[in-house]
Amino acid sequence: MTMSLDRFAELAEIYGGDVARWPEAVRETARALLVAEPARLEVVLADAARLDRLLDLAPAQSADSALLGRLIAAAPQPASAARRWLAGAGAAVGLGVAALAGVAVGVMIGQPGPTDPQSAQSVIATDFTADLSEALEEPAAL
């Protein structure tokens, strides 16, 4: 890879006066060019480095103890012995329920059911009609 003096100056303007902070892909070429043209390019780097040092003066901010305290208090808490027991018990209950459900399904499958789907529908329709007629016969008290 080759690099022109103009591109070197452009990279210094973009990434600053420390070649070590330039993109890795151009560092080696830039260093080789710097060795070949030290007089011209060291001036370019020094100029960019002056702005870098000014930028370093932009204040950062340290965390105060109140902020740290709030964040530590809000962080996930370790599971207590009681919570671990409850989680284990919950899992056991869940397994038990699942096992019972499986047994119940098995029993239902084993039961003889209505062989004629229409007869089952007629039972439901009859019950519904009976409920409706009862409701019509006994109007709600005002």
Partner: peptide, 27 residues
């Protein structure tokens, strides 16, 4: 560690990353 509720991990992560986030937001 933070996910498990390890207080030492919480503290280390804050020591390592909180100043960076604060600096970013401040600037």
């Amino acid at each position: 560690g933070v996910g498990r509720g390890d207080p030492a991990a919480v503290r280390q992560l804050l020591d390592r990353r909180l100043p960076r986030v604060l600096a970013l937001a401040r600037r």
